[in-house]
C-alpha cells in the first residue's frame, strides 16, 4: 500500500507516446503501457503514489492530463 494524495485522468488516445511525463513525474508513478492506442503509440499508466503535483500535466505536449487532489490522502 502506498500513500496517495491524488490521481490523474489520462486521455490515452490523444497521447503520442513522447514519454516526457515519465521523467517529469516526481514520485515516479507513471509507467508506459505495453499496448498501444489507436495512433499506434504506447501511453502512460498511473500507479499508486500520485501527489497531484501536476508536473505530468504541465510538460505534456498533447494535453492528456487532468489532475485531481484527494481531500484526504489515503493508502492505495
Amino acid at each position: 500500500m502506498t500513500l496517495t494524495r491524488g490521481t490523474v485522468e489520462i486521455d490515452t488516445e490523444r497521447c503520442k507516446g513522447c514519454e516526457l511525463c515519465i521523467a517529469a513525474c516526481r514520485p515516479g508513478v507513471l509507467v508506459m503501457s505495453e499496448e498501444t492506442n489507436h495512433q499506434g503509440y504506447r501511453f502512460p499508466l498511473l500507479e499508486p503514489g500520485c501527489t497531484a503535483c501536476r508536473a505530468c500535466r504541465d510538460v505534456c505536449p498533447d494535453y492528456c492530463f487532468e489532475v485531481f487532489r484527494f481531500d484526504q490522502a489515503m493508502e492505495v
Binding site: T7, D71, M74
Partner: peptide, 11 residues
Amino acid sequence: EVAQKKVASAL
C-alpha cells in the same frame, strides 16, 4: 466515491 478536487485541467 473519493472526495477530490481538480487542481489542473488539460487545456
